[in-house]
Design a protein around this nucleic acid. Structure first.
Length: 322
DNA sequence: CGCTGTCAAGTAATG
DNA sequence: CATTACTTGACAGCG
């Protein structure tokens, strides 16, 4: 029997004025004549973002949601080249501590997905260096939250650079330049344009990394359309992890904009997946990536509740009865 | 207050 | 070779 658990991404459609990713652009920062005042302002924004994250976790708690992805924009300009040397952690140490303690106390799985500027297979040394800075930022956030950073950061394999095979091998070469603490933090996700599930599995097996299977990306980009043929390999990549297998779930916005995320998740497609993987592993955490965020999760739960093949175990977990 | 253009970052696709 | 799309929330400026 498999326990399925639902989570969502970064922000809530229900909480008002609770953005976890308020920001200040570098251009604005530059316009502040006193650098110290600018840095203070950045720190205040970061504190507000973390405060809102805590509100989000409390909101999640009240709805029985124990699985959440933090925004990567918690500290604006943290890794910007021109702000090198700024200790962006010190003004938010207590906030991070409090946030992590709340997540731990309530048994919540939290993680990150840095955006597409983190590219570990880039042939450009500067881009690799910047990417490592951004990963270090995520590491420090987790570390100061008091959360074990292992398998808390989702990445794609990177660009194709006109030659997919050699670009994939470059990732393996570059991996040796990644500090081991950061290596341990990474999970790999198949993407919708370049690297398919099978490409990612090859790397995951080689580097001993958990594979995050994104069903929507797979539909948009695959070699073998039958993901079922590779599911046992996906399961195996999680055998050494303390965390349950993780999935990304979303639905295409339309036929024309197939790769874009729809507002909500199509329950039929999701239930089809659930039926197929049921029994393959003890728990599957499904990250709902929909434009309507937590509202999409609530809608999906409503659909599950009214389906006789599903038994709800709590507000956001369920099993397949068949 | 509501609308629009702009914003640190990379890569792929298009022209 | 140069520009746009991707995706995307937040903010500043403007009417």
């Amino acid at each position: 029997m498999t326990l399925f658990r639902l989570g969502y991404v970064a922000m809530s459609m229900h909480l008002q004025n609770a953005s976890p990713s308020q920001t200040m652009t570098y251009k604005r920062f530059q316009q502040i004549p006193d650098r110290e005042a600018g840095l203070n302002k950045l720190a205040r924004i970061a504190q507000s973002n973390l405060h809102n994250c805590l509100r989000l976790l409390k909101h999640n708690k009240s709805h029985g949601i124990k699985f959440f992805r933090f925004s990567s924009k918690l500290v604006p300009l943290a890794t910007h080249e021109e702000l090198k040397g700024w200790n962006y952690i010190s003004p938010i140490k207590e906030d991070l501590q409090e946030l992590g303690a709340f997540a731990k106390k309530n048994g919540m799985r939290v993680d990150f997905h840095p955006d597409h500027f983190v590219v570990l297979n880039s042939p450009n040394k500067d881009i690799l260096k910047t990417s490592l800075q951004v990963l270090k930022y995520h590491y420090l956030l987790l570390h100061h939250m008091g959360i074990e950073p292992a398998h808390r950061c989702v990445l794609h394999l990177g660009g194709k650079y006109q030659d997919k095979e050699s670009s994939l091998e470059r990732l393996i070469e570059n991996w040796m330049k990644v500090p081991s603490d950061i290596q341990k933090m990474i999970m790999i996700e198949n993407d919708d344009t370049s690297y398919t599930l099978e490409d990612c599995l090859y790397v995951c097996e080689k580097l001993n990394l958990p594979q995050i299977f994104d069903l929507h990306h797979h539909m948009a980009n695959h070699a073998d359309p039958q993901w079922e043929n590779h599911w046992s390999r996906v399961v195996k990549t999680w055998s050494h992890s303390k965390l349950p297998l993780k999935m990304h779930i979303s639905s295409p916005r339309s036929d024309d904009a197939f790769k874009s995320h729809a507002d909500f998740v199509d329950p039929t497609m999701f239930l089809d997946f659930v039926e197929k993987v049921n029994g393959s592993v003890s728990q599957i955490d499904c990250m709902i990536e929909a434009k309507q965020k937590d509202e999409a999760l609530f809608r999906l739960v409503e659909a599950l509740e009214s389906d006789s093949r599903i038994e709800m175990k709590s507000e956001s977990t369920f099993i397949w009865k068949g």
